[in-house]
Nucleic acid binder design. Structure first.
Lengths: 205, 205
DNA sequence: CGGCATTGACTGAATTTTCAGTTAGCGTAC
DNA sequence: GTACGCTAACTGAAAATTCAGTCAATGCCG
């Protein structure tokens, strides 16, 4: 276990992807970024494709961690100070989604890499399945959150809302990362999207 | 003006991008696809990067053309048979957006290439500006459509709705092309998104 | 008209660059 | 002494880009 070099290589890969994109990802760059020889990369990984796959896992784990941290925090505080007023469903939903629209380096990197991997997956069936799973999981989580506040709405309506919200989030994220939509504006649009969808759910009940 | 070879090369480039992605774009492929020597590609264009830029222009022109054709058709028929009942604002908006979600080869190709170029633009400032213009133009068109039916809503609300709808469309399109969202479902989600946003606009007035 | 110069479109065959992937071996800890 | 973590230097193939010229058309002078 003396080696965290392997992990460093993956971190570096995520960084390079965020900086130059999957298209611009060269094994030599990863190595340089990790302060390591290219040969070591091949010592630890099967090849470029393998690195990509593992990096996807890293990215998706990180995203998982965001939301997990979030949930854990809520539960913990909920338990400790039971007197805290329950967060409104709207707030809860907003927070869950806005986690992906923050100006923290980690988030930005993650979002960029995610976008790249989505784009790459269009032409790479192997990435596709993994990505598909991740997205379904993400949608399920949202549906669950929605269900807690609008459990009486038909399940298909909940799913549709979750699908639209994640799609909207991805679209906004692309624009943000593409530099044509300032972060605050993106966040505002997303908040409104949540409000709009929730209003619709209430009306549909 | 005797040469449409140059245009053929760009058409071919769009096709190759849609088929293999920007990363899989080889100049030799473009040439082969256009039935031309690779050298000719360099005769007409400065290099790979130049081709990419010009192809983005082509793609965005094509998208423009869709909507222009659409608008022209509406105006024309409106003039000729004035008795035709006016299309409901919702229908009009739906049609404009659903144009990008069709199973026609031309549309699929254009959407795929568009997605690829968006993804590329995140890392290429030169592409970025062009893309930004195209998107603003697209949003303006939507705002205008929205304004015709909800002119009394505050302009910022119209813009926000248009921004959200285009973002949602792009997100759905990505999923469709990525093969994780069947086309009919994507279309249904988009139709609902329109309904949801319009309801919100009405309420906000 | 008919020959000659010029030019733009175009090509096949190099040349150069770029990268993923390999090899041979060094140090060191056990 | 051997297994492990690691590197410098290399290879081979795939692509990008350039070169040296062909060909067909156009203009122009006599």
């Amino acid at each position: 276990m003396g080696t965290d070099r392997r992990a460093a290589i993956l971190e570096a890969a995520a960084g390079v992807i965020a900086r130059r994109g999957v298209r611009g990802l060269r094994v030599a760059d990863i190595a340089a970024d990790a302060g390591v020889s290219t040969a070591l990369v091949y010592y630890h990984f099967k090849g470029r494709a393998d690195i990509l796959r593992r990096t996807l896992e890293l990215i998706s784990d990180r995203a998982q961690r965001y939301t997990a941290d979030q949930a854990r925090t809520e539960v913990a505080t909920g338990r400790v100070r039971a007197a805290r007023p329950p967060r409104s469903p709207r707030r809860e939903l907003e927070r869950a989604l806005l986690l992906e629209l923050q100006d923290r380096a980690e988030v930005r990197e993650n979002s960029t890499a995610w976008g790249e991997l989505c784009a790459t997956a269009v032409f790479d069936p192997e990435l596709r399945t993994a990505l598909s799973d991740a997205r379904l999981c993400w949608i399920d989580a949202l549906v669950e959150t929605l269900g807690r506040s609008h459990g009486n709405a038909p399940p298909t309506a909940l799913t549709a809302a979750a699908e639209r919200l994640t799609a909207t989030l991805e679209g906004l994220s692309t624009r943000w990362l593409g530099g044509i939509l300032p972060l605050p504006h993106a966040r505002e649009l997303l908040r409104e999207a949540v409000a709009v969808e929730l209003a619709h759910l209430r009306h549909a009940t």
